[in-house]
Structure formats: structure tokens, C-alpha cells
Design a protein around this nucleic acid. Structure first.
Lengths: 216, 216
DNA sequence: TAGATTGTTAATCGATTAACAATC
DNA sequence: TAGATTGTTAATCGATTAACAATC
């Protein structure tokens, strides 16, 4: 039996629901999809479909058990499963991600970071060692790295990606502002800050005529 | 006489094309949509439509003039127009963005950062002053801030957003892992790292080597 | 003319939303 | 029974892809 596969758009919302449910769990025992939709300004059918993809245990009139739903969301998202990870490119952004640390909550275990700058070799950022980039292959193979975080300059992003993929890395989190080519079976998630800014600035330029200044 | 509005999915790719064209401009004078598509592993019709949304000056057999296309992309993306910006929440991620600095290229001028922590008040990160968060309203109004970057903890993200919107901020770049409610006319771009990780980890768990037999 | 390339119109696909039936 | 809520089926919408005509 194949599991029903969860649409990507749904998957993006699940961590948001999960966080909200955790904040509720000491206060209420049940919650409706309608109430969750209200909280985030979403369509209620959308929330119901999202929850239906992981739960199926909602009950008419009462809604979902908060604790049960939390357990189901955590299972669906694979929380508690450790993912061996490396980061390549210890510039400002790379160092920030190493320092940030919030990823541990999601099972991300950053084994090491890599950089071409010898001045960084052997130093630690956020408790993670920075190693020479020529060691990437050895570490990936040895530690069975599954996820690679790319924070190198855009010019070398594709070749960095190729190296990781060649070592068996199946998922790439790309912060370089480019589109990476990868073989089938490898997933790339882009965090393209330039693209995000382009959209926001465009919005400001074209939708910006004066507005009603209503405040509460 | 409204300008043809550019689809968001297209807008996300334009900065990628622009960067590529800039890397080419000293080497070639013309380029085809097909060649760009090849470079990034995209469908050629998609690239042609994307370029058509900003250019319309492609010519059969020759393609597009690189310099002309660069100028048209920069105009469409509003490069060179300064966008007054503030950042709220000078934790690790906020500080990283302040230090990163790459945004200046896109016209983003971060006037100041804000935090609730008095120990940070009056300090500078990446050349930007960190001010008490109670000054947000004064600065937004005074400096006509258009874009707000939210890097506060998720628990206070919505109220931070509300404050910025109340001061006339029309575009929000949200790094908190939640969905923000905003009035019509305000755009939110989410950089939800938790969601990105969820997708990547899910891929690793279900696309693993052995595939179960298909269901009926 | 032949071939490469553009741009447009139509088909497909996935995500969102609306309508509605089922259930407690 | 009445009302709230679930879950499903159908309609809509936007983005991608395919087919094709136009052009240099």
C-alpha cells in the first residue's frame, strides 16, 4: 500500500499548524479546522484538506483532538528523525545559519561546515567545525550526509551542488540566488532572497498609490 | 492603460536571468531564450514567456540583445529605486541579515533595526543602528518606511506586523515561521525556514532507496 | 529557400475555493 | 431534531507545457 502523498503546498503549512497547536495544548483539548483557518486568515476547506492529508480523525461537531493532531503532524513531518547535514560556504549567511541553531528542533544535525578560506579552517561557529572544502567528499561519504545547505557565492553554487549530489546527498537547501540543475530524485529547496526582494519591491512600485489611512 | 502585470512565478525567475546575463555581457551580444533555458534546466517556452513579459524585443533567429535585455529586466525589477526599510528583531538571524549587506544591490536601504533588548540599544550591526522597539512608529512615519523585515520570535510576529502596517508599511518580509494576517494592499513574502526544512526532510524519508510496491 | 527562433493559442496540471452530502 | 463540523466532489484559477504559426 502506498501512502497518500502530501502536496507540497500542504506540507509548507503543516509546521505552522503544529506550532499553533503546541501553543494551545495546555488550554484546550479539541480544535476545529474552522478555528485554525480563522487564526491564520486561511480558507477553512483548505485547512480541512491539509489536516485530512495527515489525520483523518476529525469528528463532526467536535473537531480534532489537539494532542492527537500534534502527534500525527509530528509523524508526518518526520520530527524526531535525525538528518545528517553539512553546510558549504561559511560567509556571513552561512555563519548566521550555524549560529541560529533553531534547526536542531527539526532533527537537522549539522555535522560540519566547509569553506575555501584557510583562515577559517579549524575554527568553530555555533559549535560546528569549519573544515577545508576539499574534505567535503570524505565527510559526506563517511557520515552518510543526506542534506546539504549551500551558502556559497552564486558563481560556484552549481559546482558545489554537483559535488554534493555526487556523494549521495539527496536534498539541497539552496541560498544562492540561482536555479540549480539536479538529477531526478534529488530535491532542491530554494531560499532565494533576491527573488523575494524583487517581488516585494515590485509590489511597492506598482500598487503604491495613496491609500486610506485607517487604523484601529 | 494598465501595464501588463507580471505573474509572481515569473518575477521570481527574473533576478536569476538578470544575474546570468550580466555574467555574459562582455562575451556575447545576443542570446536566445532556448540557451537561457538550457543553462537553468527550464522549459524554453517558459523562459520565452518570462522574457516576453518584460521585453518584447526578441527577434527570430537572433534572439535578444544582452544589453537591451539587462536594461529591461532592471527596469522591470525596479533596480536603482531606493526602498526605505527597517528590520525588527536583532537576534541571530536579524544580525546576520544586517551583516549580510547584499541587499543594497537591490535598492534596499535598511535605515535602522529594532529590538526589545536594552543591551543592544545604541549598538551597530553591519553599520546599522539598533534602536528601542518603542521607536518603531516614530521612525516609520518620519522616514516613510515602505518595507519591514520581521525577524522576531514567532510569538510576537503578528503584533509586530500589525504595528508596521499601522504605520503605512506596504510590504513585509517575514522570517518568522507563521502565517501573517494583513489587510488588502499589503504584501507578505514568507521566508519560512521551518517549512523549507519540512519539505526537504519529508522528501528524504519517502523517496528513500526501496520503494514499496504500488497499490491498486 | 531552410532553419532557427520568436511569440501565441490551446491543453494540461496542480492548488484553491465553492457546493454539498454525511455525521455526531 | 437542529446545528456545527467533517470530508468529498465539482468548479475555478493560475502556472506550466505542448502545438503551431509567424518571422528573419
Amino acid at each position: 500500500m502506498r501512502e497518500k502523498s502530501i502536496p507540497i503546498s500542504t506540507l509548507r503549512r503543516l509546521p505552522v499548524y503544529l506550532h499553533y497547536l503546541n501553543s494551545l495544548k495546555d488550554k484546550v483539548t479539541n480544535i476545529s479546522a474552522t478555528a485554525i483557518a480563522e487564526e491564520f486568515g486561511l480558507n477553512d476547506v483548505q485547512v480541512r484538506k491539509d489536516l485530512g492529508a495527515v489525520s483523518g480523525s476529525g469528528r463532526p461537531k467536535t473537531g480534532y483532538s489537539v494532542t492527537e493532531l500534534i502527534a500525527q503532524l509530528e509523524a508526518a513531518l518526520g520530527y524526531g528523525i535525525k538528518t545528517n547535514t553539512i553546510l558549504v560556504g561559511a560567509g556571513n549567511l552561512g555563519k548566521a545559519l550555524l549560529t541560529y541553531g533553531g534547526f536542531a528542533d527539526y532533527g537537522i544535525d549539522i555535522i560540519a561546515a566547509f569553506d575555501t578560506n584557510p583562515a577559517l579552517w579549524g575554527t568553530f561557529v555555533g559549535g560546528k567545525p569549519i573544515l577545508p572544502d576539499c574534505d567535503i567528499e570524505a565527510v559526506c561519504t563517511d557520515k552518510k550526509i543526506e542534506l546539504g545547505i549551500i551558502t556559497v557565492p552564486v558563481e560556484v553554487a552549481q559546482q558545489t551542488c554537483d559535488r554534493l549530489v555526487a556523494c549521495g546527498v539527496q536534498a539541497i537547501w539552496n541560498f544562492a540566488p540561482t536555479i540549480l540543475r539536479v538529477p531526478d530524485g534529488v530535491m532542491v529547496e530554494n531560499e532565494n532572497l533576491a527573488s523575494s526582494l524583487a517581488i516585494l519591491c515590485k509590489h511597492l512600485r506598482e500598487a503604491s498609490p495613496q491609500h486610506s489611512s485607517e487604523c484601529s
